[in-house]
Design a protein around this nucleic acid. Structure first.
Lengths: 225, 225
DNA sequence: CCTCTGTATTTTGTATACAATATGCATTAT
DNA sequence: ATAATGCATATTGTATACAAAATACAGAGG
């Protein structure tokens, strides 16, 4: 049974389909809507106080993002993530994070480098507070700055999509405070390589960083099963 | 003015949204619906003989695939591809084609290798006929077999999406028969490296193959502008 | 006890009605 | 002439109605 309190953030002028899309997306990523849970149009419509039309359009969008799966005439449900599926995502992500950091090396602006230092500091602050949610956000922000520095919006959107798919599991990784010292160190190392614009070094360090996360996520999923 | 004859391939049991989606997708890739052309719901609905509902859902799907762009309360139009956008796609594609061929080296089965030889032969046959459409299909098939050999469906779907976005321009490349000898040679070289399971060699050859196509597409777009 | 079948109910698929917004054009004021 | 205004029209946004299919379940037959 679903007991969560889904509410719409009625930002006035966005079409309802977009508001519903963002709401459901958040709910899936936060785990309020669990993998395998059915997304029934009438139920969601009444819970969100809209008609079925915007719900259906939002589901079509979630579907293309890989967050929902629709079976014709049966309905949609929250996508389940298998160990294999996770491995697949991590495999691609390793490749594209390396591309991203390579491009960032070539294209990052002084302003973006400055921003990255600030974000790195803020990440360390968040770790000192120990609040997992803020740590996760700061970590996301660090990578976001690098993504932006690639000046390749299409790449940014693919990387964001891949991150989204492992989000639920990655948060667990960040709950283990034993990982914090290494994380701080890795971020620092990547940032330094970017500052030197040393592509091989940056790629190597990013590879290690992503590989560590990947290993942790894999371990976590195996533990779950 | 749109004068094309869009007709639905009424495959009975697929929901209309999927039929409409595939129809519009094809029309965009073939160039029947041109970049910047508006996708008006009522017009498409009457042309395809369905109501607005499946049209709208199909548009939401096209949107997430990057083939259409929607401006709220204004409507959707076929996505325009800029030179920059194309460069961005090619950049990612180079990286992921290398990943794909690496994974294929590790995972390709004897059956898939056999299939790849057949497809290579068929590609050469098609080139002898000189029919561009068949050549394009055979070329797509060659890469498809490699994609499948990665055993990573998520990667396959991203690569297909990237290919889709440059499809319109890539066809032009295949119209120039001067490129055929090199294409045949490159396919052969990649296939041999796969057969040897020589990862560095396969990656290097795929890199060259994609780089050639990329260069040609870039040149084509610059000529267009 | 199990399976099959028919029926009521739920849920999705599609069409359509109505509302809100944007657009185009003629008209008016400057 | 040009810009601003208002109205008619076109188009999208949302809700709802109805159709079709899937599902759940009860009862009949083996």
């Amino acid at each position: 049974m679903m007991t969560e309190n889904l509410t719409l953030n009625m930002n006035a002028y966005l079409p309802l389909r977009d508001v519903v899309f963002h709401t459901l997306r958040e709910a899936i990523l936060k785990g309020d809507l669990k993998p395998g849970e059915r997304l029934m149009e009438l139920q969601l419509a009444s819970r969100l106080g809209v008609s079925r039309t915007p719900i259906r359009e939002a589901i079509r969008m979630l579907e293309q993002e890989g967050l929902a799966v629709t079976i014709p005439r049966k309905g949609a449900e929250v996508a389940k993530m298998t160990l294999k599926g996770m491995e697949d995502v991590l495999e691609i992500r390793e490749s594209l994070e390396e591309l991203a950091v390579k491009l960032a090396c070539e294209r990052i602006t002084p302003e973006q480098l400055k921003k990255l230092w600030e974000v790195k500091e803020s990440f360390e602050d968040c770790i000192r507070t120990g609040e997992v949610k803020r740590i996760a956000e700061a970590d996301v922000l660090f990578h976001d700055v690098i993504y932006e520095a690639t000046a390749n919006p299409k790449l940014v959107s693919i990387l964001n999509n891949l991150r989204e798919q492992i989000y639920r599991y990655r948060v667990e990784y960040l709950k283990d405070s034993g990982n914090y010292p290494m994380l701080i160190c890795e971020h620092k190392a990547i940032l330094e390589a970017l500052e030197e614009r040393n592509i091989p070094k940056a790629i190597e360090r990013m590879r290690a960083h992503v590989a560590n996360q990947a290993a942790a996520v894999r371990e976590m999923i195996e533990r779950q099963e």
